[in-house]
Amino acid sequence: MKKIIVGVLIIAGMLTGCAKTADKKNVVNIGISQIVEYVALDENRQGFIKALEESGYKDGENMKIDYQNAQGDIAVSQTIAKKFSSEKKDLIFAIGTPAAQGAYNTTKKIPIMISSVTDPVKAELVKSIEKPETNVSGTSDYLPVEKQLDLIKKLVPNAKKIGFIYNTSEVNSEVQLNELKKVAKGYEIIPSGVTSTNEVNSNIASLVKKIDVLYVPTDQLVVSSMPIIAKTTLEAKVPIIAAEKGSVEAGALATVGINYYKLGYQTGKMAAAVLKGEDISKMPIKISDETDVYINEDSLKKLNIEKPSMNNVKYIKTKSE
C-alpha cells in the first residue's frame, strides 16, 4: 500500500513538474529597448503593449516584458541589446533609431520590431520597406517635410532663414535635413549639429540669432531637450515648427503630427503576428498616414501670431504650464 502511495506521489510530482515546464515555455519573453524617455516614445510603447494585450498576451501571465531605457546614451542602448540577445528573448521591440540599430547589430536571429524610426533602409536595418529580408520589421514615423514646410509658409510667411538643430550621429536626422534642403526652395537652411544634450543650450542660444524660424526633426536627443529649446526660442521670438506632437506640447509652435500611440499599437499587432509564426523578413514596414495639425496656443500668444484659418487644427497648451 505504501509503495502505491509513493508511486502516486512521484507521478503527481512529475506531472506538476511537467506543468511548470510547460507554463514556462508558454510565457513569451519580450525585451523593450527605448532610446530615451520622451512623451511620443512613451506613447509608442504604451500602444505596443495594448495591442499585444488585445491579441491575447498579458504581462505577468503568458507574457513577460523587460523594459529598458537608455536615457539618450547610445552606448547604454547597445548594452541593453546585448543583454536581450544573451537572454534569448522571444522578441525585441526597439523604439528609436539608435535602439533599433543596437538591437540589429547584436542579433540577426531574434525578431526585432521597430518603431519611431524615420528611414529603416538608410539606418541599414532592412533591405527595403516593402520586403525587409532581415529579422527586422515594424513601423516608421516618416512624414514628408513638405507638410511642415507648408506650416512655416502659413504661420511664419515672412521667414527666409530656417534653423535646423539635430544630433550628428542620428542617421534619420541627416535624412530629414537633406530632404528639407531639397524642398525648401527660396529659404536659407542653417543647420546646427550637436552630439549630446549638454551642447543643446549653447547651440540654440547661438542659432536663434541667425534664423527666422526653427525646424526640429524627429530626433530623440533633440526632442528630449525641447523645454530648453522652447524657452530660448520664445524669448527670442523665434517660432518652432516641429516634426511631432510631443515637441508642440513642450512649447514648439506647431506640427503636422503622427499619433505615436497608434503607431505603437500598429507595431504591437505586427509583433503578435510574428509571435504566432508570421515570417518577419517578408513583413513590410508600415508608414502611418494618419496626421493632425497641432498648434500650441500658449506659444501662439507669446509669439503674437494670429490663429490661422486652417481645417483639422487641434489647439493644445504647454504641458509644463
Rank of each mutant, 00 (worst) to 15 (best):
A272D: 11
M270S: 13
E278G: 07
V313W: 07
I229V: 11
I305K: 12
A273S: 15
E244P: 02
V223M: 13
L263K: 00
G251D: 06
A250S: 14
I285N: 01
K209L: 06
I228D: 02
I280R: 12
K319T: 07
K210H: 02
T218R: 01
V222F: 08
L275V: 01
L214P: 02
V238N: 08
Y261S: 11
V313Y: 05
T318H: 03
N304I: 02
P227A: 00
E306T: 15
V216D: 00
S247A: 14
K231R: 14
Y294V: 14
K286G: 12
A271S: 15
N311S: 07
E306K: 15
N312H: 08
L253E: 01
S309M: 06
K282I: 06
D212Q: 09
N311M: 04
T318G: 06
A252R: 00
M310P: 12
D279G: 11
E290W: 07
I241F: 03
K307G: 09
I228M: 04
S247D: 04
K269G: 12
A273R: 10
S299V: 13
S320L: 11
T318W: 04
I229E: 01
I316T: 07
K276M: 08
T232Q: 14
P308H: 05
Q266L: 07
K262P: 04
T233M: 07
V213D: 08
Y261P: 15
V223N: 05
I258G: 09
Y265N: 00
N304V: 05
E244M: 11
E249A: 11
T291F: 04
S247K: 00
V248K: 00
N312Q: 10
N296P: 13
T267P: 08
G264N: 11
S299K: 02
T218K: 12
G251C: 07
L303N: 13
K276L: 03
I211W: 09
E278R: 15
K276P: 10
I295T: 13
K269T: 10
A250W: 02
K302Y: 02
T267S: 15
E290S: 14
E244T: 10
N312I: 05
V216Q: 00
Y294T: 10
L207N: 06
I280L: 06
P227H: 06
G264L: 09
P308M: 03
S299F: 03
K314F: 01
A230H: 14
D212M: 11
K276C: 06
K317W: 01
A250C: 05
K314P: 05
Y294E: 03
K210S: 05
V216L: 08
V248F: 05
I258L: 13
N304T: 09
A243M: 11
